[in-house]
Design a protein around this nucleic acid. Structure first.
Lengths: 181, 181
DNA sequence: ATGCTTACTTACTAATAAGTAAATAGTATT
DNA sequence: AATACTATTTACTTATTAGTAAGTAAGCAT
């Protein structure tokens, strides 16, 4: 992939998480990268194309990382899953699911489909970790693994959102409640 | 309060939760209510004024409802707190915290302050219910009430967000995990 | 009856939005 | 050397945005 193209996607990703998909324009990107408006359109004819690429890249990245963790214990895999959100919290960052889901109704069909993929990939991975880890006796909880996965995933997403509003280390507070299983 | 003014705020509230604060314009409001653009500006000179009113009204409404529940048991109060989110889920709706927090950095200072008020009010209320209910022996959980409140609040906010993306009844799935304390 | 206030409309503006067509500079291919 | 492809700029267009200034019709107050 091209340099300029990648810089555009990187910046778009950052802007989506900072200001939301409707909170930045092609002008914000072209100014920051010292290129012209039309150069951004050259790589991404419409804003939906750019948004789609941001989500697709996250899906691809998640699918690439996940298999590399298969040799770890289930608890280690859960810790890494949660650590991903801790990294974001450290930089006062939110995740793409948190950034896009609140405006999902206004996204293109392609973007909605890809967002759904991102969310269900993450949820499926977490469910697998919890299912296998519970069977292996590494975890102990009374809910079904599916329900527990929904709970943990939701708590992680919104802890980042609340952290930005309250600046109160919400993530640190909930962490113990999530891993103490 | 005036009829037109209230219709504007009601619609703005709906649009914020459907499309996000940056996902609608004064034209969307004026067209829907069959008034002119300038009429919206008459009541709310800037969009930040309108956004502020939407959040302020939610804060006021929350502060009005809360005391009326003081005669209930702590468990009943917790159930009502959660039921509020269930109602939203039924209509595929999200809450204002979920809608605004992802774009909080781009909001006016007034809006940010009011959003913080909304979030901390809700969190304080939940913390109180959990603290008193635990002391009274109605609840049993190992985390601190503060941490548990953060966890429940986060899970509720993001379950609505995820529900819209996945259309998967995330809320129903997590509910048992939240109230089984 | 007069002025004052409320609740708007008419008719704009200036800025910004996404998007496009055509030209150009540099690089690779034949 | 001519051709074609890639990455870009120049120079726009069209639509929408938030916002405003000036006017008006109806009701109330003196």
């Amino acid at each position: 992939m091209n340099d300029t193209r990648e810089e555009i996607v990187n910046l778009a990703d950052k802007l989506v998480r900072e200001r939301g998909f409707n909170g930045f324009s092609y002008a914000d990107i072209s100014k920051a990268l010292n290129i012209k408006n039309a150069a951004v359109h050259y790589y991404f004819p419409s804003k939906a194309d750019l948004g789609l690429e941001v989500i697709s890249r996250a899906v691809a990245s998640f699918r690439q990382i996940t298999p590399t963790r298969k040799h770890l214990t289930w608890r280690e895999q859960l810790d890494l899953f949660i650590d991903n959100y801790r990294q974001k919290q450290k930089h006062q960052d939110i995740c793409l699911i948190g950034a896009f889901s609140s405006v999902s109704g206004g996204l293109s069909e392609d973007m909605q489909r890809e967002l759904k993929k991102l969310a269900s990939d993450s949820l499926n991975e977490l469910t697998t970790i919890l299912t296998e880890g519970k069977e292996a006796g590494e975890f102990s909880f009374k809910e079904t693994p599916e329900a527990k996965a929904y709970l943990i995933q939701s708590a992680l997403i919104a802890s980042l959102l609340l952290d930005r509003v309250l600046q109160n280390n919400v993530f640190d507070q909930i962490e113990q409640g999530l891993t103490g299983i």
